[in-house]
Design a protein around this nucleic acid. Structure first.
Length: 207
DNA sequence: GTCGCGATTTGCT
DNA sequence: GCAAATCGCGACA
Protein backbone atom coordinates (compact mmCIF):
# COMPACT_ATOMS: atom_id res chain seq x y z
CA UNK A 1 0.00 0.00 0.00
CA UNK A 2 1.64 3.20 -1.13
CA UNK A 3 0.85 6.78 -0.38
CA UNK A 4 -1.38 8.23 -3.08
CA UNK A 5 -0.81 11.55 -4.81
CA UNK A 6 -4.11 12.76 -3.39
CA UNK A 7 -2.87 12.13 0.12
CA UNK A 8 0.41 13.86 -0.62
CA UNK A 9 -1.52 16.94 -1.65
CA UNK A 10 -3.31 17.30 1.68
CA UNK A 11 -0.98 19.01 4.13
CA UNK A 12 -2.30 19.57 7.64
CA UNK A 13 -3.75 23.06 7.97
CA UNK A 14 -2.50 25.85 10.19
CA UNK A 15 -5.62 25.48 12.36
CA UNK A 16 -4.42 22.04 13.42
CA UNK A 17 -1.37 23.61 15.03
CA UNK A 18 -3.12 26.73 16.33
CA UNK A 19 -4.29 24.90 19.46
CA UNK A 20 -3.10 23.72 22.86
CA UNK A 21 0.46 22.42 22.50
CA UNK A 22 0.00 19.30 24.60
CA UNK A 23 -3.09 18.35 22.60
CA UNK A 24 -1.26 18.84 19.31
CA UNK A 25 1.68 16.74 20.53
CA UNK A 26 -0.68 13.90 21.34
CA UNK A 27 -2.63 14.21 18.07
CA UNK A 28 0.49 14.31 15.91
CA UNK A 29 1.08 10.63 16.69
CA UNK A 30 0.21 8.61 13.59
CA UNK A 31 0.42 11.63 11.28
CA UNK A 32 2.81 11.52 8.35
CA UNK A 33 5.86 13.67 7.72
CA UNK A 34 6.74 14.11 4.04
CA UNK A 35 10.33 14.91 3.16
CA UNK A 36 11.56 15.78 -0.29
CA UNK A 37 15.28 15.14 -0.40
CA UNK A 38 17.36 16.46 -3.31
CA UNK A 39 19.08 13.10 -3.80
CA UNK A 40 15.82 11.14 -4.11
CA UNK A 41 13.20 11.59 -6.82
CA UNK A 42 10.44 10.12 -4.65
CA UNK A 43 9.34 11.84 -1.45
CA UNK A 44 10.08 10.02 1.78
CA UNK A 45 7.07 9.48 4.04
CA UNK A 46 7.41 8.73 7.76
CA UNK A 47 4.86 8.12 10.50
CA UNK A 48 5.26 10.10 13.72
CA UNK A 49 5.54 7.67 16.64
CA UNK A 50 6.98 9.81 19.46
CA UNK A 51 6.59 13.50 20.40
CA UNK A 52 7.14 15.93 23.27
CA UNK A 53 5.36 19.21 24.11
CA UNK A 54 7.08 22.46 25.14
CA UNK A 55 5.09 25.52 26.18
CA UNK A 56 5.58 29.19 26.98
CA UNK A 57 5.28 28.65 30.75
CA UNK A 58 7.56 25.62 30.71
CA UNK A 59 11.06 26.19 32.19
CA UNK A 60 12.52 23.63 29.78
CA UNK A 61 11.16 25.48 26.74
CA UNK A 62 13.46 27.67 24.64
CA UNK A 63 10.74 30.33 24.67
CA UNK A 64 10.57 30.49 28.47
CA UNK A 65 12.77 33.61 28.61
CA UNK A 66 10.34 35.47 26.35
CA UNK A 67 10.13 36.39 22.67
CA UNK A 68 13.84 36.89 22.09
CA UNK A 69 16.84 34.91 20.96
CA UNK A 70 16.21 31.52 19.42
CA UNK A 71 12.95 31.20 21.38
CA UNK A 72 11.47 33.99 19.29
CA UNK A 73 10.55 31.49 16.59
CA UNK A 74 8.14 29.74 18.95
CA UNK A 75 6.03 32.90 19.18
CA UNK A 76 5.53 33.01 15.43
CA UNK A 77 2.78 31.48 13.33
CA UNK A 78 1.61 27.92 14.04
CA UNK A 79 2.75 25.31 11.56
CA UNK A 80 6.20 26.84 11.23
CA UNK A 81 9.23 24.61 11.76
CA UNK A 82 11.74 25.24 14.53
CA UNK A 83 15.11 23.55 14.05
CA UNK A 84 17.91 24.06 16.56
CA UNK A 85 21.46 22.79 16.89
CA UNK A 86 22.46 20.95 20.04
CA UNK A 87 25.51 19.25 21.60
CA UNK A 88 27.71 20.53 18.83
CA UNK A 89 26.53 17.92 16.34
CA UNK A 90 22.81 17.30 16.29
CA UNK A 91 19.73 19.09 15.03
CA UNK A 92 16.24 18.73 16.49
CA UNK A 93 12.99 19.32 14.58
CA UNK A 94 9.92 20.98 16.13
CA UNK A 95 6.67 22.44 14.84
CA UNK A 96 5.37 25.72 16.28
CA UNK A 97 1.96 25.59 17.98
CA UNK A 98 -0.56 27.96 19.64
CA UNK A 99 -1.83 31.19 18.06
CA UNK A 100 0.79 33.64 16.84
CA UNK A 101 2.06 35.67 19.81
CA UNK A 102 1.91 32.76 22.20
CA UNK A 103 4.79 30.29 22.28
CA UNK A 104 4.63 26.55 21.98
CA UNK A 105 6.27 23.72 20.06
CA UNK A 106 6.17 19.98 19.59
CA UNK A 107 9.48 18.10 19.33
CA UNK A 108 9.58 15.16 16.91
CA UNK A 109 11.42 12.40 18.78
CA UNK A 110 10.96 9.38 16.51
CA UNK A 111 9.54 8.43 13.11
CA UNK A 112 8.69 5.18 11.39
CA UNK A 113 9.61 5.21 7.68
CA UNK A 114 6.54 4.08 5.70
CA UNK A 115 7.55 4.93 2.13
CA UNK A 116 11.17 4.93 1.06
CA UNK A 117 12.95 4.74 -2.29
CA UNK A 118 14.28 1.26 -3.01
CA UNK A 119 17.50 0.31 -1.26
CA UNK A 120 17.31 3.23 1.13
CA UNK A 121 17.36 2.72 4.89
CA UNK A 122 16.95 5.45 7.47
CA UNK A 123 17.61 5.58 11.20
CA UNK A 124 14.83 7.83 12.44
CA UNK A 125 14.78 6.56 16.03
CA UNK A 126 15.61 9.58 18.18
CA UNK A 127 15.36 13.36 17.66
CA UNK A 128 18.99 13.82 16.61
CA UNK A 129 19.08 10.74 14.44
CA UNK A 130 15.89 11.54 12.53
CA UNK A 131 17.26 14.93 11.52
CA UNK A 132 20.52 13.37 10.43
CA UNK A 133 18.67 10.67 8.45
CA UNK A 134 16.45 13.16 6.63
CA UNK A 135 19.15 15.79 6.15
CA UNK A 136 17.33 18.35 8.29
CA UNK A 137 19.47 21.35 9.25
CA UNK A 138 18.87 24.73 10.80
CA UNK A 139 20.33 26.41 7.73
CA UNK A 140 17.87 24.81 5.31
CA UNK A 141 14.82 23.81 7.34
CA UNK A 142 14.32 26.34 10.15
CA UNK A 143 11.22 28.53 9.98
CA UNK A 144 9.68 26.87 6.94
CA UNK A 145 5.95 26.15 6.72
CA UNK A 146 5.11 22.52 7.44
CA UNK A 147 1.58 23.24 6.20
CA UNK A 148 2.55 23.67 2.53
CA UNK A 149 2.91 20.76 0.09
CA UNK A 150 5.57 22.80 -1.70
CA UNK A 151 7.86 22.81 1.34
CA UNK A 152 10.76 20.33 1.42
CA UNK A 153 9.20 19.14 4.66
CA UNK A 154 5.50 19.07 5.53
CA UNK A 155 2.91 17.19 7.54
CA UNK A 156 -0.16 15.30 6.38
CA UNK A 157 -2.79 12.90 7.62
CA UNK A 158 -1.68 9.39 8.48
CA UNK A 159 -2.98 6.51 10.54
CA UNK A 160 -5.43 7.42 13.34
CA UNK A 161 -4.23 6.59 16.84
CA UNK A 162 -6.86 6.17 19.56
CA UNK A 163 -6.41 7.96 22.88
CA UNK A 164 -6.16 4.70 24.77
CA UNK A 165 -3.35 3.55 22.49
CA UNK A 166 -1.01 6.31 23.62
CA UNK A 167 1.58 6.12 26.40
CA UNK A 168 2.25 9.34 28.33
CA UNK A 169 5.54 9.85 30.18
CA UNK A 170 7.87 12.54 31.40
CA UNK A 171 10.23 14.04 28.86
CA UNK A 172 13.70 12.79 27.93
CA UNK A 173 17.04 14.49 28.31
CA UNK A 174 16.08 17.62 30.24
CA UNK A 175 16.96 18.75 33.76
CA UNK A 176 14.32 21.49 34.09
CA UNK A 177 10.65 20.56 34.59
CA UNK A 178 11.45 16.86 34.67
CA UNK A 179 8.05 16.00 36.08
CA UNK A 180 5.89 17.35 33.24
CA UNK A 181 4.00 14.42 31.63
CA UNK A 182 4.41 15.73 28.11
CA UNK A 183 6.02 12.92 26.15
CA UNK A 184 3.78 10.74 24.00
CA UNK A 185 4.50 7.60 22.03
CA UNK A 186 2.86 4.64 20.33
CA UNK A 187 3.55 1.57 22.50
CA UNK A 188 5.15 -1.42 20.87
CA UNK A 189 6.42 0.57 17.91
CA UNK A 190 10.04 -0.48 17.33
CA UNK A 191 11.00 3.02 16.19
CA UNK A 192 10.27 4.69 19.52
CA UNK A 193 13.47 5.88 21.19
CA UNK A 194 14.04 4.08 24.47
CA UNK A 195 16.84 5.74 26.43
CA UNK A 196 16.50 6.49 30.15
CA UNK A 197 13.63 5.36 32.29
CA UNK A 198 10.91 7.97 32.03
CA UNK A 199 8.12 8.05 34.55
CA UNK A 200 5.10 6.50 32.86
CA UNK A 201 2.06 8.58 33.73
CA UNK A 202 -0.57 6.61 31.90
CA UNK A 203 -0.47 3.39 29.95
CA UNK A 204 -4.00 2.30 29.25
CA UNK A 205 -2.90 0.28 26.27
CA UNK A 206 -3.33 -3.47 26.31
CA UNK A 207 0.16 -4.60 25.42
C1' DG B 1 20.96 -6.10 28.93
C1' DT B 2 22.50 -1.36 31.71
C1' DC B 3 25.73 2.43 32.89
C1' DG B 4 29.06 6.12 32.19
C1' DC B 5 31.45 9.23 29.50
C1' DG B 6 33.16 12.21 25.82
C1' DA B 7 32.35 14.71 21.43
C1' DT B 8 31.72 19.43 19.73
C1' DT B 9 28.92 24.13 18.64
C1' DT B 10 25.71 27.37 19.99
C1' DG B 11 23.70 30.92 22.62
C1' DC B 12 22.88 33.08 26.78
C1' DT B 13 25.11 34.97 31.32
C1' DG C 1 32.33 30.20 30.89
C1' DC C 2 29.03 26.63 30.81
C1' DA C 3 24.94 23.84 30.13
C1' DA C 4 22.44 21.92 26.57
C1' DA C 5 15.10 18.97 24.14
C1' DT C 6 21.82 13.69 22.01
C1' DC C 7 24.21 9.75 20.57
C1' DG C 8 27.74 6.02 20.07
C1' DC C 9 30.99 3.49 22.24
C1' DG C 10 33.27 0.68 25.64
C1' DA C 11 32.95 -1.53 30.25
C1' DC C 12 30.61 -4.47 33.01
C1' DA C 13 26.64 -7.88 34.50
Amino acid sequence: MGISEAMLNQALSQSFFQRDTVLVARELLGKHLVCRMPEHAQPIVCKIVETEAYTQDDPACHAYAGPKGRGLTLYKQPGLSYVYFIYGMYHCLNVVTEPEGRAGAVLFRALEPVQLPAEVTLNTKGPGRLCKALGITKAEHNEILLTEETSPLYLMEGEPVADDEVITTTRIGISLAQDYPWRFYIPGNPWVSIKAKPNVISAKSKI
